[in-house]
Design a protein around this nucleic acid. Sequence first.
DNA 1: ATGCACGTACTTTTT
DNA 2: GTACGTGCAT
Length: 807
Amino acid sequence: MGAISALLHEIIKDQQPPAQSGSKPVWRTTPWQGSTLAPILMDLLEGLNAPQQEAVKHGDGPLLIFAGAGSGKTRTLTRRVAHLIRERRVLPSRILAVTFTNKAAREMRERLEQLVGPQASRIWMGTFHAMCAQMLRISGHYIGIDARFVIFDTDDSTRLIKDILREENIDSDRYPPGRVLGRISDAKNNLRSPDDMTGTVKGPYERVVARLYAKYQERLRASRALDFDDLLGEAVRLLEASAEAREYWSERFLHILIDEFQDVNLAQFRWVQLLAQKHRNICVVGDDDQSIYAWRGANVKIILDFENTYTDAQVIRLEQNYRSTQNILDAAHGVISNNLGRKPKQLWTDIDAGVNLTLHGTTNASEEASWVVQQVRRLQRERDYNLADFAILCRVNAQSRPYEEAFMQARVPLKLVGTQRFYERKEIKDLIAYLKVLYNPYDNIALTRIINVPARGIGGVTIQKLDLAARESGRSMCDVILDESTADVVGGTARLKIASLRKLLQSLQNAAGEEVTIVGLLQKIIEETGYLQYLQQERTTESIDRTANVQEFLAAAALFDARLQAVPEATLSTLPEQPEEYGEAQRDEQAPFLGLFLESVTLDSEVEKAPGENSDAVTLMTLHSAKGLEFPIVFLVGMEQGLLPHARALWGEQAGADQLEEERRLCYVGLTRAREQVFLVYASQRTLYGRTEWTQPSQFLDEMPGQLLQRSGHAKLGATSARQSASDWDKPAANGSTFKPATSASATPPKFGVGDRLKHPSFGEGLVVSASAGGGPGEWVEVAFLAEGIGKKKLAVAYAPLEKVAD
DNA sequence: ATGCACGTACTTTTT
DNA sequence: GTACGTGCAT
């Protein structure tokens, strides 16, 4: 569980007896299965190739490791950390190892336990967000951050933006909350304050966003809340603004290691730089070819520029692949080598060529799905594969429906990964919101979330009044509600409702003071609010699920309690190797557990699986979720123009080479997940979002060496071979014969062109001022509407109800 | 204040 | 196709 699990690890491990001194050296080549108490004295260089060994042995100073897919990255990284500890005698507590996901952090910690024993728990290891949160809880006071801050997730942030839009009377159609939040997030990731943004506004739109950003920050602070981006940004601000904090923290870690470095944003990099400024022992590991999160602020340029930023950096390339057959690697390389913005490199393997990749075309998505099921069954018959050996990778979640149907029909178990996350379910978020209010009464977002859930007759108008009263008196809404003298801003029956809410809150606050377990507190909440009855009255099918989710949540909370209570309270405020600072850290007296619990649920969405849930099944997931995983057999489905590469990268508003290159990396990530065999599948006709369109096979298929592809189904017809080299696509077409969906015989022609007159039911008549090159699902037009106050709008032709008008 | 009906919009999702 | 949000009626 993120920072908390890191912390718990430290706490729990400290309870265990120290490692036996004088225990026998043990040499092992297989994963170690024994007790975690004895350090394993295996040779840390054993079984590593030359560049890997070099990476492990590298001494002081910056180190950049380009670690290709399947090149033994985690292995190298963990061995390096172990080497630092065992050979170079670096105290574990003075090593910082940062990952992007909790899963990666857990995995690394487990592996390190095998290499160095229990002292692994003392390494600062976790996600950027968790590490920054921890730093801010400890030292945030230097820059005025309350140690009891709560963390807003995206949902909380969106609610806050909506509130602000409503207050500011800004049309949320012109300023969609998600978009605004995206702009704010971009700014934060690039360490730009509201003032910075205001100073450089380019137009009226940005001016409004900058104002909203300022408001948003103001409201976050008033709620004693930090959003995800703030955790990074404020940690940077802390290190920049406070010499004392900077002094301490840059002294604290002697070695810093960053995983998935291709995905860092500026804030993250800056944070690392500040921490590493003294010793410059910064080791970064990544693969520019696997950077697929640019849309979330990741900046590949940082890894590409690392050698310029640290001119003395040693650069190591891990290009030997231990996962895939040479054919798979060749196909992958054929694709990725078309990217211009990358470091030249090429994976190779000792494993033999293996079988060809299969390219199969079908008529539509449901045929595509049933063909895949058949292949799964065939392969299972021919060789003894488990279902878990198969993965179906898609570009968008919307592709999953036909698969669910086909697998259901064929009675082959199918597991959908990463669809909806546990802590994001409404019922869970409601309960968490109750906890948040109890932990931090300033959290108005949490309060408004639960103020009328379950329904207790408090509606929008009342909430507005309370909110106004709160802000006018500079207090929290919770305060206003709890204070009888101020709550009478509302009149009539609402006053009674507020009175009973007051009683509820008071009672829960008492419970929070008395209850020593999270489960106990949650049970009180559920009981006093009648939450289960509320769930049950809703609808039968869903309410069963939701009730079960609540039970699961209680179980997770109980597990948390059990872990925490296995540990004397005193250890909570004292971490190993840590001078006073920790003791002084303002940990809450009343609710230490609550704070830890809340942090773990917002920073770590991964919920521990109940045992027995690991039944054998085929996995279906997006390419994004597949990063870092591997499967013997991989199906890349929906290999079509408009899906992979996605329409938005191809024909969308900001389509461009960068976007196309990211799609290509996505394709590359997909291919390199496979150990033995890849099936590339497409459908000539696809229904997406209720609309059926003709499709073209993906241009990326043309980038794979043709002799590696075994064609079947429609692919035998050679539909893809007519196409020119797809790299022509990156540049403007040189001549008329170059393939282009807009001009290709079978692609959907665009419905509108520049200069066309059209009509929209709500905006009225307008003139097309610019338009996408192609037709089909990605077609868009920019329309200048004639009516006053509407202005120009970009519209997706597939979705907007546009009618052509004769001029 | 709540419930229903219609219209509308639509990638990816580590934290 | 469906989920969500707005607007209207109760």
